[in-house]
Simulated scan of single mutants.
Amino acid sequence: MTNKLLPCVLLALGLLAACAPEIKKPVENKSVEANETEIIVPPAHETNIANASEDAPGVAVNLAPDELTLVLPNGSARHASFGIAKADAVKMLTAALGNPIEEATNQDCGAGALGYAAFRDGLSLYFQDGKFAGWDLDGRENGKFTTGNGIGIGMTRKALEAAGPAEVGETTIGHEFTMGELSGLLSSDAPDGKVTNLWAGVTCIAR
């Protein structure tokens, strides 16, 4: 190629490069990152109707001093821990128990105004500043919920103390016991006295 043609060739290549379409970088998909913080409830039970025993067979709710746990038939678990948003906690429990039978705010609690959602079988969730803060269980429907080591409504004091160290005393609300962060009431302080109530976290226990 002659030296005279070289500038023309370079000019033509430059014009082609200028006309070539710009290659755009792919847009990052942030949906995965957003979904990582989403609380997932059992897919088969997202559209519950009233009776949870029919809607979510085999889904158990376990009690703990700092949360409620949904245990699915395959053994996997969903944790509703204290501090999660009210909407998320209600959604998770609704997936297992059906819709709450009552939702309101109690202005007369010792901790101040607390929101609550009452479910069937005597289980209620309490909310403070829009966050899940505590739960309460009574025996109005022979409560079917227990802790991981079997503590539940109807358990005797003898069996309770066999499950772990418990402090029992007479208070303004009756024969009250504490086991770490878990609290409750007994029908009497005798060995055959039975657990009538359980609670943990911030609740609205009238004293």
Rank of each mutant, 00 (worst) to 15 (best):
L93V: 08
L97Q: 06
M155V: 12
E141C: 08
T196H: 06
V61K: 00
A133D: 00
E141F: 12
G83K: 04
A85I: 06
E161N: 10
P7V: 06
R78D: 06
I173H: 03
A206E: 02
A111R: 05
K30M: 15
P26V: 10
A118F: 02
P100V: 00
L15I: 14
T69C: 07
T171W: 07
I84L: 14
L13E: 04
V41S: 01
Q128E: 15
A50I: 11
E54M: 15
R157T: 04
C204Q: 02
A12I: 15
I173K: 09
D66Y: 11
R157I: 04
K24E: 14
T156Q: 02
G58C: 04
V168S: 12
E176H: 13
V61C: 00
V27A: 09
V27N: 03
L185N: 00
E33V: 08
A159T: 12
N74H: 04
L15Q: 13
D192F: 09
L5V: 11
M155A: 11
T196I: 10
T146I: 01
F132Q: 01
L5W: 07
A52P: 10
V71L: 13
L186G: 04
N197Q: 09
R120N: 15
A200R: 05
V9H: 03
H79A: 08
P191N: 05
N35L: 09
H175A: 15
S183G: 03
E103N: 03
K91Q: 06
A44R: 13
S124A: 10
R207F: 08
C204G: 02
V59L: 02
E36L: 07
I49A: 11
Y126P: 04
V41D: 03
A118E: 10
D66Q: 14
V9S: 01
N62G: 02
C204V: 02
G115E: 09
E67D: 12
P191K: 07
S188Q: 07
A162R: 08
G14M: 10
L185S: 05
E141W: 10
K91Y: 02
